[in-house]
């Protein structure tokens, strides 16, 4: 199972590495922005279309 913590977009919280944000760059028809969605490090992201594996997983 692929988990969020293996993804480039995952940024763990300093105080709790088991939780973090999935941060992504989005360009919609009107504007560009960065968005953050709370996720857990162990969340299954096998079917996530935005998954990009980190080069080094800590």
């Amino acid at each position: 199972m692929t988990t969020c913590q293996e993804c480039k977009s995952f940024f763990p919280l300093d105080e709790d590495q088991a939780k973090g944000d999935c941060v992504q760059r989005v360009k919609d028809p009107r504007q560009a922005y960065y968005m953050a969605k709370p996720v857990n490090a162990e969340d299954d992201c096998s079917s996530c279309a935005s998954f990009h594996k980190k080069e080094f997983v800590q």
């Binding site: 560009a32 922005y33 968005m35 953050a36």
Partner: peptide, 8 residues
Amino acid sequence: NKTIFITD
């Protein structure tokens, strides 16, 4: 838990 964003 809501998604947040920052526009360029």
